[in-house]
């Protein structure tokens, strides 16, 4: 029971160092691997060089949906909760956004309304978990099914996605958000992801919400006894996750120029993978927004990089194995940290 701080040996300090910085080593290792491997026979990496500008831009562009979600998802997991519905929320937002655009709503209102939808979806999760006290896993499995069903229903029968047809056309500005070069040849979607991440880093380090999230996940009894409204904290976090899922949906929809009701399928798993890879403990309390962002970059680089080496049908296997490996190593490291 008793533990002594003076016994935290150099080994413990090493574990803690590892926990804080390993993700950057992994990032460097992956970049080195992908840049030195001779991949020029494959189409995506031109001239066999990973660190080639067009290639980097391409990867960052397709990463935008995952990058924008990673931060909010981290804060939610830090508070000890989980959201399995983010993929469906993302799909639904993509569909809503495309529908608004195709029906002539201009960019800004369409964007704002879609984010509002995301907020509502998050509020539904928050309501089920906080108010009705349904286990987070079950509650968000329910909404996974619900949001997906609504997304599918919104798309006309016999059509696979919202896209330009005979009468209605997707407007020309639609894919500007996800593709048009804004700054350093990167699109707005990417910069929004960066801005959201920066904002959440500030929230985590300087905001009341970030602190309350850590307290709720770390020691819920202590948090409640200190007068923290843990229910409101969790509700707010679900709402933020919902909003960021909507931003992801907009980014994906804009990049692909269509509103695909299945576009977010499996995203919840990638989000969990990224957050675990970033060292967030699933027991709560522990985790950093920035590290998840880096984790998301790594996963996207590997996914895109992998496509140049092996066929696409290896993807599920690799992501699944990575999830298990991340969960196992994360668990071992965080347990060692706790024991010391």
């Amino acid at each position: 029971m008793t533990s002594y701080s003076n016994q935290t040996s150099s080994a413990a300090r090493f574990t803690s160092f590892l926990r804080n910085y390993y993700i950057y080593f992994v990032l460097v290792a992956v970049v080195v691997l992908l840049s030195t491997a001779n991949l020029d026979q494959f189409a995506l990496f031109e001239r066999g060089n990973f660190l080639y500008k067009r290639n980097i831009i391409n990867i960052l562009r397709v990463s935008a949906p995952l990058l924008v979600m990673a931060g909010a998802f981290t804060l939610l997991m830090v508070s000890g909760y989980i959201d399995l519905s983010v993929g469906s929320a993302m799909s639904l937002s993509a569909v809503v956004y495309a529908m608004l655009a195709i029906n002539g709503v201009p960019f800004i209102p369409a964007f704002a309304l879609t984010v509002l939808v995301g907020v509502l979806l998050g509020a539904v999760n928050g309501f089920l978990v906080v108010r009705l006290n349904i286990t987070p896993v079950i509650a968000t499995l329910i909404t996974l099914s619900l949001f997906k069903g609504v997304a599918l229903l919104l798309v006309q029968d016999g059509v696979s996605a919202i896209k330009s047809g005979n009468f209605l056309k997707i407007p020309g500005w639609f894919n500007d958000y996800g593709r048009a070069k804004v700054l350093f040849d990167l699109p707005a979607a990417f910069w929004v992801a960066v801005a959201v991440t920066l904002a959440l880093i500030v929230v985590q380090n300087r905001g009341k919400l970030g602190k309350y999230a850590a307290a709720t996940g770390g020691n819920p009894t202590a948090a409640k006894l200190s007068g923290i409204n843990t229910g409101r904290t969790v509700f707010l976090l679900y709402v933020i996750v919902g909003a960021s899922a909507a931003l992801a949906g907009i980014a994906r929809s804009s990049f692909m120029s269509l509103g695909d009701p299945l576009s977010g399928d499996g995203m919840e798993l990638t989000a969990i993978l990224v957050v675990l890879l970033g060292g967030t403990a699933f027991s709560g309390g522990e985790g950093k927004v920035l590290r998840s962002f880096v984790g998301a970059l790594i996963i996207m680089m590997l996914t895109v990089g992998m496509l140049t080496i092996v066929p696409a049908y290896y993807q599920t296997l690799v992501i699944g194995s990575a999830l298990l490996a991340a969960a196992a190593s994360n668990h071992l490291v965080s347990r060692k940290g706790k024991e010391s």
């Binding site: 798993l269 290896y314 993807q315 296997l317 699944g320 194995s321 999830l323 298990l324 969960a327």
Partner: peptide, 11 residues
């Protein structure tokens, strides 16, 4: 775990 193994098996 089982979400991961589900993907591994299907993968």
């Amino acid at each position: 775990v089982t979400l991961g193994t589900m993907m591994v098996a299907r993968g």
